[in-house]
Design a protein around this nucleic acid. Sequence first.
DNA 1: ATAGGGTTACCT
DNA 2: AGGTAACCCTAT
Length: 263
Amino acid sequence: MGAPKQKWTSEEEEALRRGVLKHGAGKWRTIQKDPEFSPVLSSRSNIDLKDKWRNLSFSASGLGSRDKQRVPRPKAPSSSPSPSPQLLLLPAPNSVADAAPPEDSEKSPHDDKTPSPKLYSAMILEALGELKEPNGSEVTTICNFIEIDKSYKLTDSYAKRALAPMKDSSLKKKDPAKSSKAAKGLALFAAASPALDAAEAAAMKVADAEAKSHLANEHMMEVERIGKMAEETESLLALAEELYQRCSRGEVLTILQVAKREI
DNA sequence: ATAGGGTTACCT
DNA sequence: AGGTAACCCTAT
């Protein structure tokens, strides 16, 4: 008697993504136990989460369906003592080239490759609000949120600018574990960017349709709302830009600081 | 508990 | 038959 092969639902997939976003890839047990996701993922084991994430990552890796070209494989030189970190890839847009339903008339007409700064500001603020991290959000987390959840691709220049100061060991933190974790995340982020150039560029601002239609709608409304505020009040825009500059330098800002204008 | 390799079931 | 996704096993 074969096991009926329980296929993953959109809800479960969404929960997994948010779980990875919140706890990071690898903390499968933590994600599975999280009260926010456990109701949805109750029938899945931690191993199931790992396997599913592997499948998602593989699909998004480059084997989009066309172009059998494998990833060039950065391959760290043997002179490097540190083990090369595995490529942690984002399970980008699912089935973009796959059976696109023609009924979708909501093709975003704006093909602007470079969203205005105010849109970035809005996204950063939205990320902070959505993540609801009491201790503040790290730059990596914010970047991941924007990339995964909003399906936006950040150019590697951004990552480089953020990474450069960190690499320079100009980072003096009280929490070495946390900073190293952040640095590692950024390193992975920067390494993955150039490799995925073509694929990511194509999927630059593709919303991953199903599963999040209502959620995305909510987010869009939120973005628009905040965006309008930023547009009308120059001060907020300036604030967001300051926030971005700080983040670029690798600083960790707390949402409290932002709220109190103490940055 | 997690990562990785291997196996089985399903779809085209 | 070939590819993909869910499942299983094992070493660390």
